[in-house]
Design a protein around this nucleic acid. Sequence first.
DNA 1: ACCTATAAGTTGCAAATCGAAACCCATCTG
DNA 2: CAGATGGGTTTCGATTTGCAACTTATAGGT
Lengths: 160, 160
Amino acid sequence: MVALAPPHSETDGCSIQATLAVISDRWTLLILRNVFRGVRRFGEMQADLDIARNILSDRLSKLVEHDVLEKVPYQHKPTRYEYHLTAKGADLSPALVALMGWGDRWYTDGQPPTVLIHEACGTPVVQRLECPSCQSEVLPHQIRSQPGFELVSPTSEELS
Amino acid sequence: MVALAPPHSETDGCSIQATLAVISDRWTLLILRNVFRGVRRFGEMQADLDIARNILSDRLSKLVEHDVLEKVPYQHKPTRYEYHLTAKGADLSPALVALMGWGDRWYTDGQPPTVLIHEACGTPVVQRLECPSCQSEVLPHQIRSQPGFELVSPTSEELS
DNA sequence: ACCTATAAGTTGCAAATCGAAACCCATCTG
DNA sequence: CAGATGGGTTTCGATTTGCAACTTATAGGT
């Protein structure tokens, strides 16, 4: 298990909380996964996801508000928009990869429905934690969490 | 942007969908983050998260149902349980790391509230995609998604 | 025996959110 | 002018949420 610092909710954990405020509902990540795959228009998304139109509309505007997607006109008369990933949205890629990986590992019997492969050589890629100074892989139990700038020594918690 | 295959919803994307069925609500990931940090009891979680007791109760039993957490008795008379991560639950660690990382990168002005460091040397760790055969880092735009076993050549989508 | 405290829920009910279908608007095609 | 297309908004019943109060089980004190 990962040894993490004891919680002190005001300063800490807000990263997850802020993240969840943006993506934690049944549809948002599915919408984003589709945008990653090139499904960018209202109708395409609606057909592919089988989501209610009002909900899709609401989620898209929230994603635009949160600067995860941006509306890009693709025709005039009448003006119609596509939804493209912003830099912030594209940066959700690792999270999407991680969640997809978990689903693959625990919710498929045989092959995963989709594998991500290294374009140059065709090998399936893996997601790992690395230590930039040791240049080696770090396993989950070899990490410790530490407050960013307060120099509080975390009263080290016992493990399970 | 990541080049991904066109969607064909029945076979594909179910990994994300299955994952979202488990974790996609406002509280579940916060609960799990706390369990990762050693907060395992009902009352502790309730106090730390400021979550309604009925919702917490509901989420915990769903997580137990989904085999992400398990109830472990820590006293008898009256029997009380702690919630521990199963292997499946612990395997959510990369996803949690990725989501926390995104929040850190986009929702904090200065230092991130919490950094994950390599226990052995104290260096902050990074999460990367790697190609096991090239033994090199793979950037998000260098990956392609591919159906797991059907040999369908994805009609390569134009990029943005 | 009685009172209080601790831990972990459950229940009741009002308020917010969701979802399916219908409706609206602008424009192009026949 | 009658559809068709694309992208929504509105309406309204069903579901989910959240707060507060209640319950159960047990230990400790007086």
